[in-house]
Design a binder for these strands. Structure first.
Lengths: 109, 109
DNA sequence: CTCAGCTATTCAGTGTTGCTAGATACTGGT
DNA sequence: ACCAGTATCTAGCAACACTGAATAGCTGAG
């Protein structure tokens, strides 16, 4: 991919991560690995950590420090009530945008 | 809408505008008005003009100055071959992202 | 004629976001 | 002791959309 996907991720990456956390708790390293698996090949390590700090400060997730056998302690994030609310708002916004774009794609044919 | 849609527009607004131009030529004021009609209520005037300058500099559009009966001359933009190519790339990237997101939305249920 | 209001474009400054690139820290195997 | 894999954090950067204002041309009301 490249620059195009990078710009598109602005605004959506946050929703993606929250969406992952809505299914199960997870920590940064794990989320990054999972995203790479899903084809987001160039998502930078640091990006996820910075994003997690942000959503924590906004109170969308709860954090728990869990010791790991394989390295430094993990910070495990889980979506809280406020986060769920925000995620719903995210999906509404996404739907709005996706609809308009699909319309444009068909119309532009 | 608000901040959420603003962030999501980063990267997609460009595709939206190119997509509009793939159907017919248009000028900034016209595009802004059309977008507002489509529900993008808070797209700023200046944003579209800045975007048009950008895509012009990247050689994705051709420009023609056309006198207007109702005001200063219009800068009418039309998509050129390079722009069409770029637009296709945009749709590929969009599809990639949209697919992943739909998957997440279903999975997160 | 002048001023308000619509048309039309431009620009400097700001905030948010993801990336780059590196530092830091803990564990286990050689 | 050293290295690889796990795990997190940080400072500085670039791109993009928004804010708010300035500029400029035309028309119709007063």
């Amino acid at each position: 991919m490249g620059k195009l996907v990078t710009e598109m991720l602005k605004g959506t990456l946050e929703g993606i991560v929250l969406s992952i956390l809505s299914g199960r708790s997870a920590y940064g390293y794990e989320i990054t690995a999972w995203l790479r698996d899903q084809g987001f090949s160039d998502i930078a390590e640091g990006t996820i950590y910075a994003l997690l700090v942000r959503i924590e400060q906004r109170g969308l997730v709860d954090v728990e420090k869990v010791p790991s056998e394989k390295g430094p302690p993990r910070k495990v994030y889980s979506l809280n009530a406020q986060g769920r609310e925000y995620l719903e708002e995210f999906w509404r916004t996404w739907s709005f945008l996706a609809e308009r774009l699909e319309q444009l794609r068909d119309g532009g044919k």
